[in-house]
Simulated scan of single mutants.
Amino acid sequence: MPPTVPTSLRVLTCVVRVTSANDLLPALQAAVDSGKPTVLDVAMINNPPPTTGHWNIPDIYSPDKDVSHVSA
């Protein structure tokens, strides 16, 4: 069980660690079929696709602050 899952959650649910994209659909289907509360612990890598332009993420997360960013 991943250490990031609180003990109370471990007792009440089933936790499944998904380590590859190929394992996601079977884990999801097993969770639905079980009929029990299930946590799918899916590790992800932040690998954004190349795009033109940008989002000003500081503005999204700090809408009430004057946060600037570096132009690309």
Rank of each mutant, 00 (worst) to 15 (best):
A21W: 00
I57D: 09
G35P: 01
T51M: 14
P49R: 02
A31G: 05
L40W: 11
D41I: 13
P50H: 10
T13F: 12
P37C: 03
R17N: 10
T13P: 07
S34R: 09
A30Y: 00
I57Q: 09
P48Q: 03
T19I: 07
V32Y: 07
T51P: 02
M44N: 08
S34A: 09
L25N: 06
L25A: 12
S20H: 05
G35F: 02
D33T: 02
S62C: 14
D23K: 07
H54D: 13
N46H: 14
D59H: 15
L28H: 06
V11D: 13
A43G: 11
Q29Y: 05
V32C: 02
G53T: 08
T7I: 04
I57E: 10
T13L: 10
I60A: 10
V15E: 08
V15I: 11
V39P: 01
A43D: 11
L24S: 00
I45C: 08
H54Y: 15
H54C: 13
I60E: 06
P6A: 06
A30N: 06
G35N: 04
L9D: 01
V18H: 07
S34E: 02
P58Y: 03
K36G: 01
Q29S: 04
I57W: 14
A30V: 00
D59C: 10
S62T: 10
V16F: 11
P50K: 12
V39Q: 04
S34D: 01
T38C: 10
P48L: 08
C14N: 15
P50F: 12
D59M: 12
N47G: 03
D59V: 09
T52S: 15
S62F: 15
P26M: 10
